[in-house]
Amino acid sequence: MSHPIPTPDELPGDLPDEDEPGTASPLAADADAGAFPAGPPALEATGLGLRYRGGWALQGCDFRLPAGRICGLVGPNGAGKSTLMSLAAHLMTPDAGAVEVFGARPGAPESRRRIAFLGQDKPLFPRLTIAETLRAGYELNPGWDQQLAERIVAQGNLSMSARVGRLTGGQRTRVALALALGKRPDLLMLDEPMSDVDPVSRQELTGLLMAEAVEHGTTVLISSHVLAELDGVCDYVLVLASGRVRLAGEVDELLDSHRLVVGAHEGTGPVPSLAGHQVVELRRTGRQVTALIRPEGELGSGWDVLEPTLEDLLMAYLRSPEATALLTPSARPGADRRLPGVSA
């Protein structure tokens, strides 16, 4: 495959080109999959901050997650991933700024109906049976989908009369996921959902998640620190580090605007042939220089230019907290409400 280095005016900020309405366009081929829903984004944070033990768990967070995306939420432990989800789920209230869910504040009744949140510790009622847990979902949610929830449970070969407290971690995850998906949310937030799930179930549950997302147009925000787990799953990504947004936007656009370059350079000073490009991360091994850059214009000769994988990109940003944060236009909150690729 050939990946031309984008020219500056193609850099993030532009709509995907005509040939490839690609990542952002209607899920045309399928039954009830329509366009990415026009209207307010699934999540929008402006100046969002939360204090925690003298410091800030989140600070000055500005980003937007357009509806219909499957977004990976990435960051080291303590970066604020869980905090962000808790704020959106109205489990916490911010000390600064605001977060909106489909244009409404998190505590509003319609937000409550539209969000499902599966926390890292997967809280469930240990003394209830699985059937009773699903009944709880039915009793508490007007849009409850019992069939779907039962199907998720059944695929794990779990007995409906099994007590939740006796399940293994992976089985609990499945039940919690059944409860979250049975609610038929418009925004599903999953905090490290697959951490205690075996590989086979992980693949199956991820597939199920994707299938539900495509069938109902659910926006999914999924956090993980296993970056490989997100590759191929996410079409959108949000990177947090130290409570701040480092990177946000469409995976394709972000990959397109970055290059992994390998070349030779003597010494430890700045590399002259990379001047003028934004260097996210630069590593040296002897004479070899490996850099993840945001090229601006032509790159001089003498460089091996590779398209980075999502993992390369995320790792580079996670390792270089001093690099300038990057948000593609659709990930920027505020005035520009236009969604790329949305036909009115």
């Binding site: 309405p21 899920l27 039954a31 597939g207 994707m210 299938a211 799953v233 079409d235």
Partner: peptide
């Protein structure tokens, strides 16, 4: 196969499937 069927079996992003189908259509 529908996008739902593909993603359920492969656990990849639905938009990837649709993008591929669009390419085939093109």
């Amino acid at each position: 196969p529908t996008a739902r069927e593909v993603v359920e079996a492969t656990a990849i992003n639905p938009n990837t499937v649709l993008k591929a189908y669009r390419e085939l259509e093109r």
